Amino acid sequence: MKWQGGRNSGNVEDRRGMSGGQKLTLGGIGGVIVLIIGFFMGGDPGELLNQMQQQQGGTTEQGEFQSTPEEDRLVEFAGVVLTSTEDVWGAIFQENGKSYPVTKLTIYRDAYETGGCGVGQAHFGPFYCPGDQKIYLDLSFNNELANRFGAKGEFALAYVIAHEVGHHIQNIFGVLQQTNAMRAKMSEREYNKISVMTELQADFYAGVWAHHATKQSDVKLTYDDIVEGMRAAAAVGDDHIQEQAQGHSSPESFTHGTSEQRAYWFKKGYETGDINQGNTFNDPSLQ
């Protein structure tokens, strides 16, 4: 993956020195699993965040900030990748006679107050907040990808950012509003299926970005990068995460899709490059 020297987005907010907020204490492995399922790589974190903060309380912590060369490099990397998504989605929207309203990427450390989804926490993983239309990322997640989930290589983090941008695309199209409206009308098990479809579509949009990135942006990808992206998608499948955390998986509780499904939809987005091919909500296999 070639990205060095690429244009850096002006829509990256580096808030690592301003992080602070309620520090939640999780009740054992069960709490960790709930957070991983609820926040890992997308979804709507606002309701769950607020509920946990009300139940457990917390104190505001503000630590001294000191960056490292590795983190500085990741910040630059994230900025170049975000610019690439802006170039690709800007072109796609323009082809359809529309203007692409960009999202912002807020990089924080430990905890940070979002503009509509409560206090984000590092152990929630990256997430998109529809309330302020921003992506939130603690850079320590890059180590989680490599060391805990086995998703190594630079493109793994690029895939994560592109996935969250995919949620922003869904928000623009009104998909998130529709799926959130279904939440109150369905049982938890029924809504989990909707959540899986939502997440897989964001994976598809990440693949669409990868399809166009080399031609339309400063990021240059090889097929090895795409294979790396598929591995990253598979590494964060619900089945893989649950088996790692508790030794078995519970399909009825899946909210993001299996490893096979996530890799499939990312690959489909990459191979087609066509946003019209990503209607996961009409896929009979996901019903």
Rank of each mutant, 00 (worst) to 15 (best):
Y191P: 04
D238C: 04
T255L: 08
W209Y: 14
A245K: 03
Q242D: 00
R148K: 15
I172T: 11
Y205Q: 09
I226G: 10
M230L: 06
E228H: 07
Q170P: 02
V160S: 05
E164I: 02
V219G: 09
G237T: 02
M186L: 15
Y191K: 06
R148W: 11
D218C: 05
V219W: 14
N171M: 06
K193A: 13
A156H: 08
T258V: 06
T214M: 03
V208Y: 05
N192T: 08
N192H: 14
Q178N: 03
H167F: 11
A206R: 09
A184F: 06
T179G: 00
T198I: 08
T214Y: 08
E190D: 14
R189S: 15
L176E: 04
D218Y: 02
A213N: 10
Q201S: 11
A181K: 07
V236W: 09
K185I: 00
E252C: 00
G153I: 08
G153T: 11
D203A: 02
V175M: 01
Y159I: 02
L157S: 03
R189V: 15
F254C: 05
R262S: 01
S217M: 12
G150H: 12
V160D: 01
G150V: 13
D225C: 09
E154V: 12
H211V: 00
A210N: 05
S195A: 14
I241P: 01
E164R: 02
A232G: 07
L200M: 07
T222W: 08
G207M: 08
A234Y: 14
E243N: 05
H248V: 11
F149R: 09
L157R: 02
N171E: 13
F155A: 05
F155H: 11
G229H: 10
N147R: 12
A202T: 09
V208L: 10
V165Q: 00
R262D: 08
E228R: 13
N180Y: 01
Q244D: 08
S217E: 08
H248E: 12
G174P: 05
Y223L: 15
F149H: 14
I241N: 01
V160E: 02
S250Q: 15
Q261W: 09
E154R: 13
A234C: 04
I161G: 02
A235F: 11
M182E: 07
A245R: 00
H240K: 15
D224H: 12
I161H: 01
D225I: 11
D238R: 04
A202S: 15
